[in-house]
Amino acid sequence: EPLWIRPDAPSRCTWQLGRPASESPHHHTAPAKSPKILPDILKKIGDTPMVRINKIGKKFGLKCELLAKCEFFNAGGSVKDRISLRMIEDAERDGTLKPGDTIIEPTSGNTGIGLALAAAVRGYRCIIVMPEKMSSEKVDVLRALGAEIVRTPTNARFDSPESHVGVAWRLKNEIPNSHILDQYRNASNPLAHYDTTADEILQQCDGKLDMLVASVGTGGTITGIARKLKEKCPGCRIIGVDPEGSILAEPEELNQTEQTTYEVEGIGYDFIPTVLDRTVVDKWFKSNDEEAFTFARMLIAQEGLLCGGSAGSTVAVAVKAAQELQEGQRCVVILPDSVRNYMTKFLSDRWMLQKGFLKEEDLTEKKPWWWHLRVQELGLSAPLTVLPTITCGHTIEILREKGFDQAPVVDEAGVILGMVTLGNMLSSLLAGKVQPSDQVGKVIYKQFKQIRLTDTLGRLSHILEMDHFALVVHEQIQYHSTGKSSQRQMVFGVVTAIDLLNFVAAQERDQK
């Protein structure tokens, strides 16, 4: 057995438009009618409502009807409940999964919650491996369901041993009777949507819809739904939504950006999952974080739909894509998950301010006199920076000697690579993860907040409520011999709460 199987392995699926269902090699399930009293909570997966979006479509000038398939009504709160249950049931049916076995899954959280929910009911041990950027709410729900959680670096490539995929496979090879159901490759993922989600949409719309818009992560949702719609409703256009920084969209030119990270969760990847059939997507749109969270908040405030950030991405694209539809036509959007997962993220004004998705003037509360002053007023001194090749031991000596707790790590040209902190280095040394002679590049981390000289002290204040420091950066445009230009970030300084307090105190003292 291989040590790991690539999540982007070539698909062996034989589905073709027009091929009889009787030739399918898979076990198919028909939607079942729910009894009045459910035998367990797993029976509350599927049969989610279709809700008309009344205000947002009109606000953006849509002539067509805009409908939302509300997947956050599933038992675990997301569309991923469907595939989690289906993968477990299919693994039980073919004898792969037996009582007492362990389920391991690399996930952005929602599939993990679905699997942990099913594992709690069915009696399996469950280990979820997820990147650090995923919300604390997801972690809390997983723990409450009895799952064990392993976190991995957000910026690790999918084929790196440190990625959530790599760590999951390492655990599988170490733990007896453990299984990775593997949402990236498992046919049960798109089949769950082909058999149930798509049929529900067709039934709820009486077979009449002209466009379907869905955000894409593993691709199982859009693949399964689109294949069924292509068979039953061939005139329906399928629109895929991919965040900026991901590479799922086609044509490839759409993916060209210097951005590699994004805040919206559960969609987009740096590889093409095996289950994603991009041939059934008629057109791709890219979405960005700001519009995703703005539209998610709009869905909550104006439509009462308590959905997550990827739902915002989907609707932001839908109001663009559906401009081509006329009166009497219908566009369906998939709202994948609930706001429950993001209470401390985009639902929080403070978080939105820190990330730059909300401006101070958007909030009406009274601010102190210094709130709208610029960061450049602080008069920061030149920063202490270190090269990635310097040793951890030497870096600790320098920081202690100069009285700093942290320093930016830059390359020879001064471009920011990340940050090192005294606390992080000492804990890594004590844990045996690094040696004093190791290069400081081994303990770089990139989960820090950046701020510009033109940003306000109010925004800085919000950042420092949650973080010990902020890195002050400025952009530099560099022209190359080819005539092309590129933008790079340079370090201007490091600012802490002490710097802000000293500035405010000094100004008030001078005024007296």
Rank of each mutant, 00 (worst) to 15 (best):
I238C: 06
V241C: 14
V241P: 05
V241K: 04
P243I: 05
P243S: 06
E244N: 11
E244Y: 10
G245T: 07
G245D: 02
S246Y: 04
A249I: 08
P251T: 12
P251A: 05
E252A: 12
E252R: 13
E253P: 02
E253C: 07
E253Q: 13
E253M: 02
L254W: 07
L254T: 15
L254E: 02
L254I: 04
N255M: 02
N255D: 02
Q256L: 11
T257G: 09
T257Y: 08
Q259L: 14
Q259I: 15
Q259G: 10
Q259A: 04
T260M: 15
T260C: 08
T261R: 11
T261Y: 15
T261D: 05
T261L: 06
Y262R: 02
E263T: 06
V264P: 02
V264H: 02
V264Y: 02
E265P: 04
E265R: 02
E265Y: 02
I267S: 04
G268E: 02
G268Y: 05
Y269K: 04
D270Y: 04
D270C: 05
D270Q: 06
I272T: 08
I272G: 07
T274N: 02
T274D: 04
V275T: 02
D277R: 07
D277G: 07
D277V: 04
D277S: 05
T279F: 09
T279S: 10
V280D: 13
V280Y: 10
V280S: 12
V281L: 14
V281C: 15
K283D: 08
W284R: 02
W284L: 02
W284P: 02
F285K: 02
K286L: 02
K286H: 02
S287P: 06
N288V: 07
A292M: 02
A292V: 07
A292L: 02
F293W: 02
A296R: 02
M298Y: 14
M298L: 12
L299Y: 02
I300N: 02
I300G: 02
A301F: 13
G304T: 04
L305D: 02
L306I: 02
G308I: 04
G308F: 02
G308A: 06
G308M: 04
G312L: 02
G312Y: 02
S313G: 08
S313H: 05
T314R: 06
A316K: 11
V317M: 15
V319A: 11
K320N: 13
K320T: 13
K320I: 09
A322R: 08
Q323G: 13
Q323R: 13
E324M: 10
L325R: 02
Q326C: 08
E327V: 07
E327C: 13
Q329W: 05
Q329S: 05
R330F: 02
C331T: 02
V332R: 02
V333G: 02
V333R: 08
I334Y: 02
L335C: 15
L335R: 02
L335I: 02
N341A: 06
K345R: 07
F346P: 07
L347P: 05
L347C: 11
S348W: 05
S348G: 02
D349N: 12
R350N: 10
W351S: 06
L353H: 02
Q354P: 05
G356R: 06
G356A: 02
F357C: 02
F357Y: 09
F357I: 05
F357A: 04
L358P: 05
L358V: 09
K359Y: 02
K359F: 08
E360H: 05
E360W: 14
E360G: 12
D362M: 10
L363Y: 02
T364C: 08
E365D: 13
E365N: 05
E365V: 11
E365R: 13
E365S: 11
K366M: 11
K367H: 02
K367S: 09
P368H: 06
W369Q: 05
W370F: 12
H372G: 14
L373G: 15
Q376F: 08
Q376N: 10
Q376P: 08
E377H: 06
E377L: 11
L378S: 08
L378Y: 06
S381A: 15
A382Y: 02
L384N: 12
L384S: 14
V386S: 08
V386I: 13
L387P: 15
L387A: 08
L387G: 15
P388H: 08
P388M: 02
P388G: 14
P388T: 07
P388W: 11
T391N: 12
T391I: 09
C392T: 12
C392L: 12
C392V: 13
G393A: 13
G393T: 15
H394A: 02
I396L: 12
I396S: 13
E397H: 11
E397G: 10
I398K: 15
I398T: 15
L399R: 02
E401N: 15
E401S: 09
K402I: 09
K402Y: 07
K402E: 15
F404P: 02
D405V: 02
D405S: 07
D405A: 13
Q406R: 02
Q406L: 07
A407M: 05
A407T: 14
P408W: 12
V409S: 05
V410L: 11
D411A: 13
E412M: 07
A413G: 12
A413F: 12
V415M: 08
V415H: 12
L417K: 02
L417P: 11
L417D: 10
G418H: 12
G418E: 05
G418Y: 08
M419Q: 10
V420P: 05
T421M: 14
T421R: 14
L422F: 10
L422A: 15
L422R: 11
G423Y: 02
G423W: 14
G423L: 09
N424A: 14
N424L: 14
M425A: 02
L426K: 11
L426V: 10
S428K: 06
S428Y: 09
L429F: 13
L430A: 14
A431N: 15
A431T: 14
G432Y: 05
V434A: 14
V434D: 14
Q435W: 09
Q435N: 15
Q435F: 11
P436S: 11
S437Y: 10
S437Q: 15
S437I: 11
S437N: 14
S437T: 04
D438A: 02
V440I: 12
V440P: 10
V443A: 14
I444H: 08
K446I: 08
Q447M: 10
Q447G: 06
F448M: 06
K449V: 07
K449R: 11
K449E: 14
K449L: 15
Q450R: 02
Q450W: 12
I451R: 10
L453N: 08
L453H: 02
T454M: 13
D455F: 05
D455W: 09
D455K: 06
T456H: 11
L457P: 07
L457D: 02
L457S: 02
G458A: 14
R459L: 09
R459N: 10
R459I: 14
L460M: 08
L460W: 02
H462M: 11
H462C: 10
H462Q: 12
H462V: 13
I463M: 13
I463T: 13
M466F: 13
D467S: 11
H468W: 02
H468I: 14
H468N: 13
L471V: 13
L471G: 15
H474P: 09
Q476F: 13
Q476I: 12
Q476S: 07
Q478A: 10
Y479G: 15
H480S: 10
S481M: 15
S481F: 13
T482V: 10
T482Q: 02
T482H: 05
T482N: 13
T482S: 13
G483V: 12
S485T: 02
S486D: 06
S486A: 07
S486V: 09
Q489T: 15
Q489S: 14
M490C: 12
V491D: 02
V491S: 02
V491C: 14
F492H: 15
F492Y: 14
F492I: 14
V494Y: 02
V495F: 13
V495P: 15
T496Y: 02
A497L: 02
I498V: 14
D499Y: 02
L500T: 14
L500K: 02
L501V: 11
F503K: 02
A505W: 02
A505Y: 08
Q507A: 14
K512T: 10
K512A: 15
K512I: 02
